[in-house]
Design a protein around this nucleic acid. Structure first.
Length: 325
RNA sequence: AGGGGUGUCGUCCAGCGGCAGGACUCUGGUCUCCAAAACCAGGUACGGGAGUUCGAAUCUCUCCACCCCUG
């Protein structure tokens, strides 16, 4: 009996901290290997947040199809669970067209959600329940009480959470109240293998260089009209506490428009917050053994980097093909 | 040149004779449910020298640096 070889499809992901050139690299790789780009960025999914999230412009896309960008109204919250569903659908579509999915973006959890068979609760956020729990958390001894309550209904989650992390404690309690089941019950084993061969790369550079890139990028955002973009969102009726407006670059400009910060202070705050975010992105990726790192400063120019990256991907694909023969 | 003031982590500030502390920054980390979020952990300082004292960041003298005022 001839053995039926079911070849898993290849999927590429280009991750890394912000401002390292992921967007351009993804487009290059997609062009070189016949791919389409899929965003894995928790803020670029919102419509109207282009400048501050450094979403690719039409010119930067160079004719390569892009997915999962700017499709969500900014007044609506979005979540990993929804991203997982949307991203897998988009990935399946790209594969059905016989093209290579090239994910790119900096949201670590989103990468995990698409590249691992994780399962999330169906229930979305319930603001009434959430508000009530938040009030309870603010009472004296509130956090302790909430954690003890969680320990009764969902001991596994309670054990993993620090008492001060009321945000996650509240979410776990909320899920239990809505579904009657412990959040941890739906957890799947990390060791379950995905249905695709994931080739995951991360672009990086020394911290000082990154800081300079970030500073320059924030200046560029302002000169491209970030303040007007924020004004337009606000006058379009997006509430100030919308999840979309908690993004770096937006919350600070809003504080400036409200007179709480000078423009100089706002710019400084955006830079600092972006650098801190970049640090957390690195921490996240360092913990993933699948990630192959590329220090962009090791390459004389981006063209060389892109060529090397595309070649690396081809080699990996060939190696995996050979293994499965 | 004369008079006054200030020198404490990278930054801003507390400590005013008895173990040098906080906030922010920074560094490392956590993570299957708001993730550009939330949370945890860690490092670093008394301007230099001399004196008083059992004991000095703290009191005295001196030098240095910076700020203000007068000329």
């Amino acid at each position: 009996m001839a053995e039926q070889i079911v070849q898993k499809p290849f999927v590429v992901a280009i991750a890394g901290p912000t401002a390292t050139g992921k967007t351009a690299a993804a487009v290059s790789v997609a062009k070189a290997l016949g791919g389409e780009v899929l965003s894995m960025d928790s803020m670029q999914i919102y419509r109207g947040l282009s400048i501050g999230t450094a979403a690719p412009t039409a010119e930067e896309m160079q004719g390569v199809p892009h997915h999962l960008l700017g499709f969500r109204p900014p007044e609506t919250p979005y979540s990993v669970a929804e991203y997982q569903r949307d991203a897998r659908q988009a990935m399946a579509d790209v594969l059905a067209r016989g093209r290579l999915p090239v994910f790119t973006g900096g949201t670590g959890l989103y990468l995990q959600a698409v590249s691992h068979p994780l399962r999330f609760t169906e229930s979305g956020g319930d603001s009434a329940v959430r508000q009530r729990l938040q009030q309870e958390a603010e009472a004296p001894e509130g956090p302790q009480k909430l954690l003890m309550r969680l320990a009764v209904v969902d001991p596994e989650s309670a054990q993993r959470l620090h008492q001060n992390n009321t945000r996650r404690i509240i979410r776990a309690l909320e899920v239990f109240e809505q579904t009657g089941r412990a959040m941890s019950e739906s957890n799947t084993d990390w060791r379950e293998q995905p249905d695709e061969h994931w080739l995951i790369f991360a672009l990086t550079m020394p911290r000082d260089a990154l800081r300079k890139r970030i500073a320059a990028r924030v200046d560029a955002m302002l000169s491209r009209g970030l303040i007007d973009e924020v004004r337009a969102l606000l006058s379009g009726g997006v509430p100030r506490d919308a999840q979309a407006l908690q993004a770096i670059g937006y919350k600070e400009i809003i504080a400036m428009l409200d007179g709480q910060l000078t423009e100089k202070e706002a710019v400084e705050a955006i830079r600092t917050h972006t650098a801190q975010y970049a640090k957390r992105q690195m921490t996240w990726l360092r913990g993933d053994p699948r990630v192959r790192w590329l220090d962009v400063t090791d390459y004389p120019d981006t063209e060389t980097l892109h060529t090397a990256l595309a070649q690396w991907i081809r080699n990996e694909m060939e190696r995996i093909h050979a293994e499965h023969r």
